[in-house]
Simulated assay, not measured.
Amino acid sequence: MLSFFNNFYFLVAIKLLIGLLSLSFVINISGKGNLAPSNASDQIQNYVLGGIIGGTIYNSAITVLQYILILLLWCIVILGLKWIKTNNRFMGQLLDGQPLVLVNHGKLNIANCRRAGLSAHDLSFKLRAAGYYYWEDLQRVVVEQNGQLLIIPYGEENPKYPLVTDGQIQTDILEIIGKDDTWLTETLAGMGYRDLSRIFLVEYRDGKLLVSAF
């Protein structure tokens, strides 16, 4: 009986160590510094991870080799989803949702507030926490996939958010500065950047584009 318990706890320790190592590996490879979920797919990944480790670590019927294979499959799925979301805007929005405009030129969009699950109290509280008390004074308010608010007041000539990230055009930010996709692509082409997929980041400052490309 003693040897059985010793063997059982030894296998649990091995599985726990493997789980911790695989988790550290995925975090480092995916570029995330912590486990705080920033969107829907991140939350699901955390749930699945908890189910894998919690459901198999104490199950003596699952061997260490089977456990390693399960974690390997999980790592492949996570990294595959990350690549898809980074390189395909449509799939990224399908998996994580997309930002919702709550305020546009001082007008409140109640339907989008409801879609985002924000009550009038929640929205007012978030605006007050950011230092704004009246939505009529705001040019644009957008709720991101992680629930954070992107707030642009009137008179903001240089938006604090990029126009292009990972080759994807941020149309909401373009609208804030009164531009469109055609203007952006033509301006970038004039600067020698014709392939958006090779552009890492584009920022707008004092009427000029600051470009970082691969």
Rank of each mutant, 00 (worst) to 15 (best):
Phe200Ile: 06
Leu49Ala: 07
Asp166Val: 01
Gly31Arg: 00
Tyr47Phe: 11
Thr171Glu: 15
Thr182His: 07
His105Met: 07
Gln145Lys: 02
Gln148Trp: 06
Tyr9Cys: 02
Gly97Gln: 06
Lys15Trp: 06
Leu20Cys: 11
Glu156Cys: 15
Lys32Ala: 03
Asp181Thr: 14
Asn34Cys: 04
Asp206Ala: 03
Leu72Asp: 10
Ser124Tyr: 04
Thr187Trp: 05
Asp172Arg: 00
Lys82Asn: 06
Leu201Ile: 07
Trp83Cys: 10
Phe125Met: 10
Gly54Pro: 12
Val12Lys: 10
Arg140Thr: 04
Lys82Gly: 09
Trp183Val: 06
Ile151Gly: 15
Thr165Tyr: 11
Gly19Met: 11
Arg89Pro: 09
Ile173Ala: 02
Ala130Pro: 09
Pro99Cys: 01
Pro162Thr: 11
Thr187Asn: 14
Gly51Val: 15
Leu196Tyr: 00
Gly147Leu: 10
Leu184Phe: 11
Glu136Leu: 05
Asp180Leu: 02
Asp172Tyr: 12
Leu127Ser: 04
Asn104Pro: 07
Leu196Arg: 02
Leu73Trp: 11
Leu123Ser: 01
Leu149Ser: 06
Ile18Leu: 12
Lys126Cys: 09
Ala189Phe: 06
Asn46His: 01
Ser60Gln: 15
Leu209Phe: 10
Ile27Gly: 00
Ala36Leu: 13
Ile151Thr: 01
Phe10Asn: 08
Val77Ser: 13
Tyr204Ala: 02
Lys85Asn: 10
Leu174His: 03
Asn46Lys: 00
Thr185Gly: 08
Asn7Gln: 15
Tyr47Gln: 04
Leu123Thr: 06
Trp83Lys: 14
Ile52His: 03
Thr182Ser: 12
Gln139Thr: 11
Glu175Arg: 12
Lys32Gln: 06
Lys15Phe: 11
Asn28Leu: 04
Ala213Lys: 06
Thr63Gly: 15
Arg89Asp: 13
Ser124Pro: 07
Ile18Ala: 09
Leu149Lys: 10
Met191Thr: 00
Pro159Ala: 00
Gln170Val: 13
Arg128His: 11
Leu2Thr: 15
Ile78Pro: 00
Phe200Glu: 03
Lys208Leu: 04
Leu16Thr: 12
Tyr204His: 04
Leu209Met: 03
Gly80Ser: 07
Ile62Gly: 14
Leu163Trp: 01
Gln168His: 15
Pro37Asn: 05
Ala189Arg: 08
Ile76Pro: 01
Val202Gly: 05
Met91Gly: 07
Asn34Gln: 02
Ser30Ile: 09
Ser60Thr: 14
Lys208His: 13
Arg205Phe: 12
Leu150Phe: 14
